[in-house]
Nucleic acid binder design. Structure first.
Lengths: 332, 332
DNA sequence: CATAGAAATGCACACGTTAACAATGCTATT
DNA sequence: AATAGCATTGTTAACGTGTGCATTTCTATG
């Protein structure tokens, strides 16, 4: 039913090979016939059958963008920026396939035949088996957002720890000594890194905080709200709270205002990520910017280059995170 | 390099035809040999080559999820919910390909060979050409979010107009008579529908507002902020503002608090969409819930059923929108 | 015992594309 | 004029899978 190169060949009075070569701009073909064939193809509205091409070329034209999960733990802004970044880079001739790793019962269908390359937006060490699997199958692979040690891969990660360090240090510089932390989802690497940065800064400045200042969350709005509610009940209420992402910070601010208190007058709040909405919160959120879109773009570019040249350094590249000072932290 | 059915055949001492049939659970095959072959396939770690299968079966195993754009106009929450909804439904044997329609230079590569089915999250009439193209190519097609008249397609849309009507009516019932609107992106169908619902409610209650109460936005945070800033400068400042989505509402609230005013004491604000963060704004946002995730899920289910059975009613199905009353509107 | 028919398997081709190799005609060099 | 070599095109096979039809073997029926 649909047009094939053989149909074109018949009409042009040449062999289908010649058509194939002409359409692929082979230098073997006489420029005139090439033009003629292209014209015919155009007029017949020809589109190549990618399955056939894939079969013989052993390429799928599929690129996978995998997240740890599409459920709790992955915020909307994170997903959005990642897709946008990757999508901006990949050429017209790749399909971008989006998927949560935890949606796979078996990785069976993930192989070189089905994916020309894979980008993993890794948030948790639970992805490890997937990453190792893909690496083992020799699928071109870029891992973003989380450092991977066990396997050699192209690896781009934002420097969460130093971001958290600088933010916490900033809180200290503003005169805060009672600084609590609302942590991210358990098991996520970023959770650990941000906590480490926080602890490091406190230690450096000789500040110690009670255990009750460590409250767990899971990166979503509700958990931020719940965690802050706990903190506000404390007899020795903190003067500042570092929320490990902006979503939780929004929830936390809510918990404060609900009690008739206000940010930053009664308590200071800081976040992490710098999502789109953070600048528009009331008060505008002091946070740490993580360049997710840039990271995704860089990752996609690297992957494409690797697919083309089959060559690249497999090492961890740290992306700079940046302290963004706004209005949610009071100077004491 | 990778295992094929012929390799299995050799090992099992049968023809590759038998292997193919066995793995596809054909009733033609002796149950015992079938089991034996399956065992061998498993031990050899066989995965079918989808390109080859696609070629002969004329199916791509690709499902497309297309947005009007991945840039301004599509909010993170919208993208997130849509992907989540669709992803929850599609079986393990489909690839979900995500893409912005405005990223295509030519629709060339969109055809039945490359897509078993397409879901269009349509926000603008600019998608019309794409929808007609896909429909013309006889690709199984579901259009979500925006009613389509020119072509017969499966079409699921939230009832934005009546949602906006009820919300506006609610504002009136709370005693507001000076109600402004911050509109959505020009050219988007939803912009029109929400405006219509707003106007209808005002008319019904015999309220007229000055032209200056219609301020244009484009569904993003900045535009909400800018629009509200304008409104606040007005000599006859409105007592309530209907923002055509939650993102703009957040931006609008920001503009209010920046001026030392507060919501809802000095001015009431309402939104539209009910994104995840809306309940956690301060104050919690009164808005209209649009069941995007459910819509996406329903759309995906419908599409899969159609692909299987080749049969379905092509008509518009309205999804109910729901007024969500929170704390951002004051009773006068 | 002959035979019809069912059950199980194999043969051969098709899907649409690319590419190694062969073939042809032409030009330039000796 | 013979030939080497280039430019251009065609022949043919290959990629891995599914399926119509033929073939073989076995069972049941008369």
């Amino acid at each position: 039913m649909s047009v094939t190169i053989k149909d074109i060949a018949k009409l042009a009075g040449v062999s289908h090979t010649t058509v194939s070569r002409a359409l692929n701009d082979s230098p073997l073909i006489n420029p005139e016939t090439k033009e003629r064939i292209k014209a015919i193809a155009g007029s017949m509205n020809y589109t190549p059958n990618y399955s056939a091409r894939s079969l013989v070329l052993d390429r799928s034209y599929n690129l996978g963008l995998f997240f740890t999960t599409l459920h709790t733990g992955t915020s909307a802004g994170f997903l959005y920026e990642a897709i946008k970044g990757v999508n901006d880079v990949i050429k017209d001739d790749y399909n971008l396939i989006v998927r949560g790793i935890d949606d796979y019962k078996s990785f069976h269908k993930v192989n070189r035949k089905n994916f020309d390359g894979i980008i993993v937006m890794s948030q948790s060490e639970s992805d490890q088996s997937f990453i190792e699997y893909a690496s083992d199958k020799e699928i071109p692979l870029v891992v973003l957002n989380r450092p991977v040690e066990s396997v050699q891969v192209m690896n781009f990660v934002p420097d969460d720890q130093s971001g958290a360090y600088r933010l916490t240090e900033y809180l200290v510089q503003q005169g805060h000594r009672h600084i609590a932390i609302i942590e991210g989802k358990k098991g996520f690497k970023s959770t650990q890194a941000r906590r480490d940065g926080y602890c490091e800064a406190l230690r450096k400045h000789g500040i110690s905080v009670p255990e009750t200042y460590f409250v767990s969350g899971n990166y979503d709005l509700e958990s931020g709200h719940a965690a802050m509610s706990k903190l506000l009940e404390l007899p020795d209420r903190p003067t500042a709270v570092f929320c490990c992402n902006d979503d939780m910070a929004l929830g936390a601010v809510k918990a404060v205002t609900e009690r008739g208190l206000s940010v930053p007058e009664d308590i200071s709040v800081a976040g992490f990520d710098d999502h789109l909405f953070s600048a528009f919160m009331s008060p505008a959120l002091t946070t740490v910017r993580r360049p997710i879109e840039e990271l995704s773009r860089a990752g996609a570019e690297k992957l494409l280059k690797f697919i083309e040249t089959k060559h690249s350094e497999k090492s961890v590249v740290l992306f700079h995170t940046e302290l963004v000072i706004r209005d949610s932290v009071k100077s004491l």
